[in-house]
């Protein structure tokens, strides 16, 4: 029971870095662009945010700086992959390596330093419930991410912006021929993805574990990429997927606390192993992927 309470109360915070990055990547992929640089974008955002908070700039400025850094680096990706038609897979990898390198370079003198996280806000009444009460005590960024999820869902479902994004992802030729600026829309979508990845990194480094260590993103950017596939490009499914991964990353700790003897390396690999298994299960269902997949994902478009 204690383990369940522990997982329920921490799950959303653990899920937030995955969720923010995956939602950003979703917008880019819906517009037809595969940006594999999420890990590097998150790492850069994490370093920028940590440095700002450490020097007393506060969390709001830190998130703004991290988001800006993520967006700028992803615009460099957009320039290569969309402007110059470079290979999207390779350009994404390059951005990832570059982002991780810059993160390590900027963060070098901050190794093992800590900052103060954010206070938690609780929902009156609900927070006192037994077992599930912990779900309603979260930091402000978790609440904002919870608000961002339905907002992005509604944007795709009801607004012209959402329709445009989907149009350039499904059939860029048709979108172009009726006069929409395909490349400009894609660039904007990629920049949004970079912004969200920057936020995700900022959350990981200054709120969730407010301690700087090189490589602290530890594959979470890659899992966010996998989450977009798990969620079959649907916002709400990505949300549930992120919650699952939040729970998985805590389940190990809960098991250890409960006296289960497992090698710590197995616990550390758990999110990666779960990713591999779930990818296999979801991908083997071809109908599901065909139904919701993005037709022109990763394909270059030249007007």
């Amino acid at each position: 029971m204690i383990a369940v309470e522990f997982i329920l109360s921490g799950m959303l915070a653990a899920a937030t870095p995955f969720l923010l990055a995956a939602l950003g990547e979703l917008v880019g992929e819906r517009a037809g662009v595969l940006n594999l640089g999420v890990e590097g974008l998150m790492a850069l955002g994490a370093a920028v945010a940590f440095i700002i908070v450490y020097h007393g700039g506060g969390h709001a400025l830190a998130f703004a700086g991290a988001g800006l850094a993520g967006a700028l680096l992803s615009l460099l990706f957009a320039f290569a992959a969309l402007g110059l038609q470079a290979n999207q897979v390779a350009a994404g990898l390059a951005i990832g390596i570059l982002g991780q390198g810059l993160s390590a370079l900027f963060g070098k003198t901050y190794e093992s330093l800590t900052v103060k996280g954010l206070p938690k806000l609780s929902v009156p009444g609900l927070a006192d419930l037994p077992v599930v009460g912990g779900l309603f005590v979260q930091d402000p960024v978790v609440w904002l991410s919870l608000a961002a999820t339905p907002a992005i869902w509604a944007t795709f479902a009801f607004t012209k912006t959402g329709l445009l994004l989907r149009a350039v992802g499904e059939n860029p030729k048709a979108a172009h021929s009726i006069g929409y600026p395909v490349i400009a829309i894609r660039v904007a979508a990629v920049a949004f993805g970079g912004l969200m990845s920057g936020f995700a990194g900022a959350y990981a480094a200054t709120v969730y574990t407010p301690l700087w260590a090189d490589g602290m993103i530890a594959g979470r950017g890659w899992i966010a990429l996998a989450l977009v596939v798990f969620g079959t490009w649907l916002t709400l499914r990505i949300f549930w997927g992120a919650c699952l991964f939040g729970a998985v990353s805590l389940a190990g700790l809960a098991a250890q606390a409960g006296g289960v003897e497992l090698p710590s390396q197995l616990l550390a690999s758990m999110p990666y192993l779960v990713t591999i298994v779930v990818l296999g299960v979801i991908s083997s269902n071809r109908r599901l992927l065909k139904l919701n997949g993005v037709a022109s994902l990763g394909e270059p478009f030249k007007p």
Binding site: L36, A218, L225, S269, Y272, L279, S283, L289
Partner: peptide, 14 residues
């Protein structure tokens, strides 16, 4: 299983 080789091979590295 038709899973994306980019993600699977990277996860296996971790």
């Amino acid at each position: 299983l038709r899973a994306n080789e980019i993600l699977v091979s990277l996860m296996l590295s971790l």
